[in-house]
């Protein structure tokens, strides 16, 4: 009885403190948000302008009459849905391939002891240190030898073999190394093999990290125009990011349409981010394990 009486005021002041802290946080966050949202607003207003308003440059910030039909014409001027389909084929394949090749390699680097592992690790880091421009032409020549020109394969196959995945391998290795040994060791004692440990323990426990990799690979492949430009020879395979560049012409171009189209293609990324960050709240947090 006495205990509860003593505790109550303490609890109340804590609650009050939490309300104050949260309000301050909200204010800070709203202010910061404005800084981060600004570029987006700029895009939106530009997308809604008329060509004549574009000519006035920054002296006109808000469009006088929002030209919503700019969004419609941006979609109609290019084969939007064909490009969308192409983007999805490439993006989903790259995501799948990268997640497969990066998680397996990361498991090898993080949890297994094999000869030359540390040397290969350095080699993996080194593959990120060579500016890609200098290997562009030989890579293209190689694909033309294999007979991949005119297909989507140059954009898809490398992902399954760790092409461009060094970043993710390293990232996942860091996360895998954070998973307590007890978990893997007890599984081995229970007779599990490494593949089972990998699929049943490592992957489920690394959901936030894998979501991060999924988000990044999605963004990378979705927004990449240079790879498709160089490696896709057939315009019927073009992606949205590449197709949108048609609005950028020799003399400036149709900025309003370009921005309208850019807003349309950034929406899926935003939705994906919103979904991905949710897993950061659930968390896995090893509730069953004592540290």
């Amino acid at each position: 009885m006495t205990e509860t009486v003593l505790k109550r005021p303490k609890y109340r002041s804590r609650k009050r403190r939490r309300i104050i802290v949260h309000s301050v946080l909200h204010i800070v966050l709203v202010l910061c948000s404005f800084v981060f949202v600004f570029p987006f607003l700029w895009m939106l207003f530009t997308a809604l302008k008329t060509p004549a308003e574009l000519l006035k440059g920054i002296s006109v910030f808000f469009p006088a009459e929002p030209q919503w039909q700019n969004f419609v014409s941006a979609v109609q001027k290019i084969p939007f849905f064909m490009y969308l389909k192409n983007s999805l084929i490439i993006v989903l394949s790259v995501m799948t391939g990268t997640i497969f090749s990066a998680t397996t390699a990361a498991y090898a680097f993080a949890k297994l002891k094999w000869k030359g592992r540390d040397k290969w690790f350095i080699v993996m880091l080194a593959t990120m240190m060579l500016p890609i421009q200098v290997i562009l032409i030989p890579t293209f020549v190689m694909y033309s030898w294999i007979g991949w020109l005119g297909t989507r394969l140059p954009m898809i196959v490398p992902a399954f073999f760790g092409g461009g995945a060094a970043f993710y391998i390293f990232l996942l290795r860091q996360f895998f190394k954070g998973i307590p040994k007890e978990m893997t060791e007890s599984a081995i004692i229970d007779g599990a093999n490494h593949w089972q440990i990998f699929t049943k323990i490592m992957l489920p426990l690394s959901k936030p990290a894998i979501m991060t990799v999924a988000l990044f690979t999605f963004m990378g492949a979705w927004n990449d125009y240079f790879g498709p430009l160089i490696f896709l020879s057939n315009p019927d395979h073009w992606t949205l990011a590449l197709g949108l560049r048609s609005f950028q012409t020799q003399y400036g171009g149709q900025y309003n349409l370009m921005m309208a189209a850019s807003i349309l293609i950034m929406l899926p990324t935003l939705i994906l981010f919103f979904l991905a960050q949710k897993t950061f709240i659930e968390g896995i947090k090893f509730t069953g394990i004592k540290g």
């Binding site: 032409i137 293209f140 033309s144 125009y225 430009l229 160089i230 020879s233 315009p235 560049r245």
Partner: peptide
């Protein structure tokens, strides 16, 4: 005919010429 945007055309043709494609 295949059209490339003005700013992309040059990269595309440069790679094509050097790879004899």
């Amino acid at each position: 005919g295949t059209g490339y945007g003005f700013w992309d055309y040059w990269d595309k043709i440069a790679v094509a010429i050097s790879s004899r494609t």
